[in-house]
Design a protein around this nucleic acid. Sequence first.
DNA 1: CTAGGGTTAG
Length: 443
Amino acid sequence: MVALSFLLRSCTAHSAALQCHAQSFIQGLLPNSIIQTDLLLLYSKLGLLHEARKVFDKMLDRKNMYSWNVMIASYAQNCMYADALVVFREFKFCGLRPDHYTLPPLFKASVGVDDSSIGSTCHGLVIRLGYEGYVVVANSVLEFYVKYGAVSQACCVFSNMLCTDSVTWNLMILGFGRAGLCSNAMHCFREMLSLGGMRVDFMTLPSVLNACGKEGDLLKVREVHGHVVRSFGFDVDAAIGNALIDVYGKCGCLKDSEKVFRTMHFLNLVTWTTMISCYGAHGKGEESLLLFKKMVDEGFRPNPVTLTAILTSCSRSGLIDQGKQIFSSICSDYGFEPTVEHYACMVDLLSRRGYLFEALELLQSVKSSETGSMWGALLAGCVMHKNVEVGEIAAHRLFQLEPNNASNYIALSAGSILLEESTFDQADLSHPLAQMICKILII
DNA sequence: CTAGGGTTAG
């Protein structure tokens, strides 16, 4: 049995796992909690969650903390968050108490199923059970607040932490950056550098760069880039390279983006997508299209984000026919249905160039999945081309869909001034937001 | 020998 247990722990392939599983059975070793735990771990590592679950269920009352923790963590790791939470519910039903291995995946699951109440409850558990001092647990609490955009809560957790590591600091940088508190993010980065014994690792840099990009501060970008080169050389990790391409683009240095792109050795789909959208943002639609073609030629399969990037590029450069052609071949060429974002891009593409009726037609064809951004794009086009007829339809529908979106009211009031027409009267003036806008306009 | 972190659009 010891030999088999050893074998199970060293398996790396599905077929080997199956053989070991069969052997365990033949030799009459099953059911046995050691072998079953090894099998559970093995199937989990191979990503065979269905098999893992079968082993887990057969363990009946032989389940221990180890096996519960493996099952919950495996579901969370494989993005099966709801399953992780169901297993945790069973776990609690058995009268068991979570430990410092059980808790971190639960925070991940809370974010995964987009239910912050679970994370809050788990935070309470962490405090009550006294796991705040475990850095991995504390970091997972921190991650939960960061991913939910609750920076002040994150700061609170951070300031109470007795022990921090690079993950802690990386999460704070990420949190500040996402909240738009870019100087705080940079401050964290510099403090991290000055802290003896704290290593700035490769996971830190994309978040720092992202924060710099939001600020648009080229000097800071160059400072961080210098750090990248000193620590990792020019042949950087894909995520760092991608962040550099993006951030130079956002700072207006397209040449630097291209330079990073050319010198990268580990390109992934994000790399191509980022470069395409940089060209798009700089109004270089032709370059975007060329790169898109090259990407496909090199065997990369565009995902929905890539297509949004290329359609946006076409829209900004007025490449109507090319955009239409790509849009219509999404399903046949890339194997997925166009998303609402893609429809919004197309409405934008058509509206910008004054094809307002065509845009309206497209919108009416997706009636069930129409979004505010689609009508917003159409409205913007109507304002641009001074078309009251379609503009009124767009404004009316936009207010039905998003009565609480203040920016729509602003757009409409600005549009009304440009149109010098009565579009504004079409809106629901009894709505509090509309009344607020009225007041502002009158003053 | 079971737990945690990064990059792309709008």
